Computed example of a mutant assay.
Amino acid sequence: MGSIQETTTLHNGIKMPWLGFGVFKVKDGEEVVNSVKAALETGYRSIDTAAIYGNEAGVGQAIAESNVPREELFITTKVWNSNHGYEAALAAFDESMEKLGLDYLDLYLIHWPLPSEGKYVETWQALETLYKEGRVRAIGVSNFKTHHLEDIIAKCDIVPMVNQVEYHPQFNQRELHDFCKKHSIQLEAWSPLMQGGLLENPLLVEIAEKHNKSTAQVIIRWDIQTGVVTIPKSVNPQRIAQNADVFDFELSPEDMDKISTLNQDQRMFADPDEFDRV
């Protein structure tokens, strides 16, 4: 993998960058506009937002004010829990598109399965409609466990193209990753740096020093080498650039094995079977 422009091909043939820029908890307005512009100037072409982040308008503004042609961009947003259900999801999509100021979307995700509502299959059918109408180039899910995916595969027409989940060296989701590979679902990591919680890890520091890289760069590189798309977030232009500087080195099989020993099968965040915030 030679550059930030490198892509994986989703099961419907759409190309998705291995490295994207996440804007979770980035304030709408100047902060998100400046952050997205810094990312685009660095060379990122994939931007990941969500309705609940409250910054779709700022992301859209940054895109509009950049000189990057729309066809070079890969823009993701997500339908929130309060808009589960067929008609509600379609309306939420329209609202997101208006805020983003886009004619089409590259990837639309169901943000959480919200099993307490029992509507994620119906919500998925709305995404299938948007996909069949050509309003979105790819559809997927976020925070779905294997049994949620099995439910969709059994009851719906289209297998999700992406599953975006909590994924980092201490929670490598091996079984879920294997299931996704079997069904050609691209796994994508949110919170790849465990919100900074792994940056002082002695093993990662040691590997980083060996490669003359930062621990963040080692983790991002590990994601990509495990076949996982990753979307680190920062509002610092230097760190945004640093996070992208991961295509000029490779972790050895020994490095990869050592990092795998950090796995604790332990979530930092909510279990999707229990998360029911709307």
Rank of each mutant, 00 (worst) to 15 (best):
G134F: 07
P232R: 04
D178I: 04
N172V: 12
E150A: 07
A138C: 10
P253S: 14
I158L: 05
I152V: 13
D255L: 06
I207M: 02
L198C: 02
L193A: 06
Y167P: 06
A154M: 13
H168A: 05
S214C: 09
I152A: 05
E128C: 00
G227N: 02
A241F: 07
R174M: 12
N172I: 10
A244G: 04
V165K: 01
L130Y: 08
E209A: 14
E175P: 08
S191M: 08
E250Y: 00
I152S: 09
D157F: 12
H177A: 04
Q186R: 09
K258P: 11
K233N: 07
N263C: 13
M194Q: 15
K181I: 15
P232T: 08
P232W: 05
D255Q: 07
Q264R: 15
N212I: 10
T215H: 07
F247G: 10
Q195F: 14
V141F: 01
T261R: 11
V136Q: 01
I220E: 04
I139Q: 06
D257V: 14
L176D: 05
K155M: 12
F144N: 05
G196A: 03
I153M: 05
G227T: 02
F144C: 07
N236A: 15
K210L: 08
G140Q: 01
Q186P: 09
D178R: 11
D248H: 05
L204E: 06
P169W: 01
R135V: 11
D151G: 09
L198M: 04
P169N: 01
E175V: 08
F171V: 03
V246F: 02
I231H: 05
Q195N: 15
E254N: 10
N172P: 14
A208Y: 00
D178M: 11
D223T: 01
E209T: 11
V159A: 03
E209M: 11
E128W: 03
Q170W: 13
E250I: 00
E209Q: 13
K258N: 15
K213T: 05
V141D: 03
L251C: 06
V136F: 01
P232A: 09
Q186H: 09
I219A: 01
P232I: 09
S142Y: 00
A244R: 03
D255C: 04
Q186I: 06
M194W: 15
K155C: 14
L149K: 06
L198Q: 00
Y167Q: 06
H168G: 07
A244L: 07
W222M: 01
V162W: 05
S252E: 08
N263M: 08
M256Y: 10
D223I: 00
S191Y: 14
V165R: 01
A208L: 06
F247K: 07
